[in-house]
């Protein structure tokens, strides 16, 4: 499963923990589910290594507001490419000032990449083996956007 960042397939530097998995020693960058983040927030924030959250697409983003400066990765999920809730989560996170990696996971396909990038995603976990080529095709498709450069000043 290629992980695209900046248009290139890169290695995933993060360890994605199940809810039952014990925390590895500090120094390892980990992500946890939104539920686990709520439960173990204090312990996770105390680590020196980067921490991240995998947020379900039905979850509000507001509870994360105070922690955004400390989060290195937020992964938002597309259970099916046609379920677009994560687009609004992404917009709200970026508006709230989140500057870390915003990763799209799940059913991430070529024809939605550009939409995702335009609401603030900057990393994409894709099933397609030729993800780099697809990224090039997707971003090359448009140079004209009505939002935000057109109607919106």
């Amino acid at each position: 499963m290629p992980l695209l960042k900046g248009g290139h397939a890169v290695a995933d530097a993060w360890v994605h923990l199940d809810d039952a998995e014990p925390l590895p020693p500090d120094g390892v960058a980990v992500t946890v589910s939104g539920e686990r983040w709520e439960r173990e927030r204090a312990v996770l924030l105390a680590r020196a290594a980067p921490v991240g959250v995998r947020l379900g697409n039905g979850a509000p983003v507001e509870p994360l507001a105070a922690d955004l400066p400390r989060l290195g990765l937020i992964a938002l999920h597309f259970p099916k490419f046609s379920d677009g809730r994560a687009y609004s989560q992404a917009r709200r996170l970026r508006r709230a000032g989140y500057r870390g990696e915003l990763r799209a996971t799940g059913n991430v396909l070529q024809d939605q990449l550009l939409l995702m990038a335009r609401v603030g995603f900057d990393a994409f976990q894709m099933a397609a083996s030729d993800a780099e080529r697809r990224w090039q095709a997707a971003v090359g498709a448009y140079a004209h956007f009505y939002q935000p450069r057109r109607t919106v000043a």
Binding site: G84, Y87, L115, R118, Q147, T151
Partner: peptide
């Protein structure tokens, strides 16, 4: 027309 432009290929609202 303003709404047409605003809603066309809207990145956030294409999979409602």
């Amino acid at each position: 027309e303003i709404l047409r432009q605003w809603s066309t290929n809207h990145p956030e609202f294409s999979f409602l």
